[in-house]
């Protein structure tokens, strides 16, 4: 077991570089990085910036797999630089490229705008049949644990774009919505508080919709949060087919509770605090 803090191996980082003001096409520069046990790819990039080449650009923020900024193509597979251990994926060489299927702004910085635009199209928020309900709610919505579980997994998405980079359909199809927005659509379709499934179907059922998913499964394999977009998309297909055959569940919003009910409060439990919003 190597001592922490001591380099155990020299690893060559082959990093894609691109400066929009100077370069016509991206090129690769190699850097030798002394790697310790426990070093992430993000640490390696910091080493390069601090010691070898201060002009290297990439995007990161939280360095702990929460913000979804540092998605990159590491040895041919999209992953977050911050939660990928160098020694887990590299022996002597590590290629670091920006996420494919997105335009490159500079070096390792992809332009994720197209993904955010597609995300917006599926209306990724709870829709009510009665629009006033969204602003002036009349009570709480009851949701069982089972109902929560039917979408909870898909709500862990951090919008890092790894699935979009791994999707083979998106390699050629600019209009296909892709795994992230479609999984977001399923996350809200499956939510019992939501009544927007039929409105969303118009987007997910379109030519750019879920019928261009062929279950290559890469999105689920690369997802750093275990969201499993492929599962969401297959469930979305099932619900679309059922809707097409008129066999789908009619929207049944969960029970709305008008207050805590008429039960008697136990003496050792405090009263409900006053509404603040």
């Amino acid at each position: 077991m190597a001592e922490a803090g001591k380099a155990v191996r020299q690893i060559a980082f082959h990093v894609t570089r691109y400066n929009p003001e100077r370069d016509r096409v991206p090129f690769v520069t190699s850097y030798q990085v002394p790697v310790r046990q426990g070093m992430t790819v993000l640490d390696g990039l910091h080493y390069i910036k601090d010691n070898l080449d201060a002009t290297l650009a990439w995007r990161y923020s939280c360095r702990m797999g929460i913000c979804g900024s540092c998605g990159m193509l590491l040895n041919g597979r999209p992953a977050l630089a911050c939660n990928t251990q160098i020694l887990h994926i590299a022996n002597a060489n590590l290629t670091v490229k920006p996420l494919p299927n997105f335009p490159i702004i500079r070096d390792l910085v992809p332009d994720l705008q197209s993904m955010f635009d597609k995300h917006r199209i599926v209306e990724p928020y709870i829709l009510h049949a009665n629009e006033a309900e969204s602003d002036f709610w009349a009570g709480e919505f009851y949701q069982s644990t089972e109902q929560l579980k039917s979408y909870l997994q898909f709500s862990y998405c951090i919008l890092c774009g790894c699935c979009m980079a791994a999707c083979p359909t998106l390699a050629t199809d600019t209009r296909y919505l892709g795994p992230m927005p479609l999984a977001a659509a399923q996350r809200y379709d499956a939510d019992t508080r939501d009544e927007g499934r039929h409105a969303r179907n118009a987007v997910t059922d379109a030519q750019s919709g879920v019928s261009h998913c062929h279950y290559a499964g890469e999105c689920s394999r690369v997802c750093p949060k275990g969201v499993d977009p492929a599962k969401a998309l297959q469930l979305l297909k099932r619900s679309l087919v059922l809707d097409y055959l008129h066999l789908g569940r009619q929207t049944s919003p969960c029970k709305k509770l008008q207050g805590p009910g008429n039960g008697t409060r136990l003496p050792d439990i405090a009263a409900v605090p006053k509404k603040t919003a």
Binding site: D205, Q207, S211, V241, Y244, L245
Partner: peptide, 12 residues
């Protein structure tokens, strides 16, 4: 529109 319609028949 109608990706699902033709896709359902493709499956059938």
């Amino acid at each position: 529109m109608g990706g699902t319609r033709s896709w359902t028949w493709h499956m059938a």
